Amino acid sequence: MRYPTSTDDELEAAIEAASLAVRKGELVVFPTDTVYGIAADAFDADAVQRLLDAKGRGRSMPPPVLVSASTTLDALAVNVPGWARALVAEFWPGPLTLVFHQQTSLQWDLGETRGTVAIRMPDDEIALAVLERTGPLAVSSANITGRRAALDAGAAETMLGEKVSVIIDGGTTAGSDPSTIIDATGDQGRVLRPGALTLEELNGVLEPLGATLTDEG
């Protein structure tokens, strides 16, 4: 079902419907600061598998995890380098995804992660409101793999409507570029996927600390 958000009451109903659907193990779609995302409870392995199936995506491409606060980082990741914390402080919430070694105690199955987890805090009021009620969500772009990511609810509904329980219509997203993905599992950070944040912007924060990122491309 598609939920409008043009009034406060509509927004509350949409957020509550999405939160309830997530708790029931269902899939939901909502806007982020980059593109629309399709989301599942990160700790519900069956729901995460349904997310991958909905996109036509294999377990070799595990979804990132979105959080509502940077303080959640240490509950999900270990061995977080100081330079990565500097990027989090500067660019979260925002279009920055960081790949860390995951906490070994976490009871989840996101796919073939090889012991890592990609984490982001989006800069979008609707996304953050949902995350505050659900906790960490596995979220991928709302599209069929190989097709363009949805920038509005209509495009998401066309591709995924039969596979999700709730679509929150928040209008057209502010950005079309995906988040920049950084590998923070080694001694030096690497750009795994260029995106909304440039290498120059990121290194502008890190160079005063004596650190720099390399571009895998």
Rank of each mutant, 00 (worst) to 15 (best):
R2V: 07
Y3P: 04
S6P: 01
T7K: 08
E10F: 05
L11H: 04
L11G: 02
L11P: 00
E12P: 01
A14T: 02
A14Q: 12
A14P: 02
A18K: 00
S19E: 02
V22C: 03
R23W: 09
L27N: 00
V29I: 11
D33K: 15
T34L: 05
T34M: 04
Y36N: 11
G37Y: 03
G37S: 05
I38Q: 02
A40L: 11
D41F: 06
D41N: 12
F43A: 08
F43G: 07
A45G: 05
A45C: 09
A47H: 01
A47T: 01
V48T: 04
V48K: 00
Q49V: 09
R50Q: 09
L52P: 06
D53N: 14
A54L: 04
G58S: 09
R59F: 15
R59Y: 13
M61F: 12
P62I: 06
P62N: 04
P63Q: 05
V65C: 05
A69C: 10
T72R: 13
D74W: 15
L76V: 08
A77S: 08
V80K: 04
W83Q: 02
W83D: 00
A84C: 15
R85M: 05
V88Q: 00
E90R: 06
W92D: 02
W92Y: 10
P95C: 15
L96A: 03
L96V: 12
L96R: 04
T97Q: 05
V99S: 02
T104A: 11
L106R: 06
L106C: 13
W108F: 05
W108K: 04
D109A: 13
L110N: 01
L110H: 15
G115P: 15
T116D: 11
A118M: 03
D124R: 02
E125W: 12
E125L: 14
A127D: 13
A127K: 14
A129F: 10
V130M: 09
V130L: 13
L131T: 00
E132H: 15
E132Y: 10
V139K: 06
S140P: 05
A142L: 06
I144Q: 13
I144A: 08
R147H: 10
R147P: 04
A149D: 02
A149M: 06
L151I: 06
A153E: 06
A155E: 10
T158D: 12
L160M: 11
G161T: 09
E162L: 13
E162N: 14
E162F: 15
K163P: 01
K163C: 13
V164F: 03
S165Q: 10
V166M: 07
G170P: 02
T172F: 12
A174P: 02
S176T: 14
S176Q: 10
S176G: 09
S179Q: 05
I181Y: 02
D183F: 04
D183G: 14
A184C: 08
A184W: 00
T185A: 11
D187L: 08
G189R: 00
R190A: 15
R193I: 12
A196T: 14
L197T: 04
N203V: 01
N203S: 05
G204H: 10
E207W: 03
G210M: 09
T212C: 13
T214V: 12
D215C: 13
E216W: 15
